[in-house]
Simulated scan of single mutants.
Amino acid sequence: MKQLSLPFADETCYAAEDFCAAPSNALARDWLARPDSWSNGRLVLWGEPGCGKTHLLHVWTKSHNATLLNGPELRGLIRPRGPVAVDDADIVPEPTALLHLLNAAAESGYAALMASRLPPARQSIKLADLASRLRASETAEIRAPEDELLAQLLARLVAERQLMLSLPVRNFLLTYLPRTAAALREAVARLDRITLDRGIKITRQLAAEVMQDMLDL
């Protein structure tokens, strides 16, 4: 299987109105609206990269005055002062830091929201107490995006960058790119960069060149 090369960083808007609601993320949205129903006050959103987990964490954090933490930067003892969310909770460098955070949140009665690529039951968690806490949490999968969601996301990405993409070019990208939000974001970012650098229009041929470069053919 060919691997995507994703070198371009991009500043993403995480406003609630910019989230693309669809059946594939309906379960996650439903659970986020009912934190009082979470098992042990915890919820783990899981799904492939780019499926919307981070966006939903930002929306929930803002609406609940919660603190958003980045899993890869989670270290030491952190005592939350309210609801807390942890992105990339499956790649924390110090598992004990996440364990202490979850324990402290539970002791204070604060909700804890996490995002990961896999559900806790399928993660290799060496710290037994942490594995127990995570596997006793509520989980909600964000499934692969539908055709309508991908088309909606592409339209939004194009509008954000004020790009001119003809219908044939859009259909080409939606048909031949990997069916992930991450691939769409990367393709649009690359097309935007090329048009700025070269001062040219986006054509089907240019889109094909970008896709070929992404797939490293």
Rank of each mutant, 00 (worst) to 15 (best):
M114R: 13
A112I: 02
L150P: 05
G109H: 09
I125T: 08
A151G: 11
R133C: 04
A155F: 03
R122Y: 10
V158I: 14
I142R: 08
L118P: 02
I125C: 04
P145N: 07
L127E: 10
Q152E: 13
S132W: 12
R135L: 01
Q123N: 06
L134I: 10
P120I: 05
A144V: 13
Y110V: 00
P119G: 05
A140L: 02
L130W: 09
A128I: 14
Q123V: 05
A115H: 05
R143P: 03
A111M: 10
A121K: 15
L134A: 05
A111N: 12
A121W: 15
S124F: 14
V158R: 00
S116T: 09
K126L: 14
A155M: 04
A128F: 12
A140E: 03
A136G: 15
R156Y: 04
R133M: 08
L150Y: 06
D129F: 00
G109L: 03
I125G: 05
A155T: 00
A111D: 02
E141H: 12
A136R: 13
R143Y: 10
P119M: 06
A115T: 07
R161N: 03
L127H: 14
R117Y: 10
M114D: 12
A151W: 01
A131K: 15
K126E: 15
L150A: 06
D147T: 12
V158W: 01
K126V: 05
S132Y: 12
E146R: 11
S116V: 06
P120V: 07
K126I: 10
S137F: 01
V158S: 03
A111P: 08
V158M: 02
A140G: 08
S116H: 00
Q123I: 01
M114L: 15
R143F: 08
P145D: 07
I142M: 05
G109D: 00
L150R: 11
I125E: 05
I142Q: 08
A128H: 10
T139I: 13
E148H: 06
A121I: 15
A115E: 07
Y110Q: 05
S124Q: 14
Q152P: 06
Q123T: 00
Y110F: 15
R161M: 02
I142A: 01
E160A: 09
A115Q: 09
A140H: 06
E160M: 00
P120G: 07
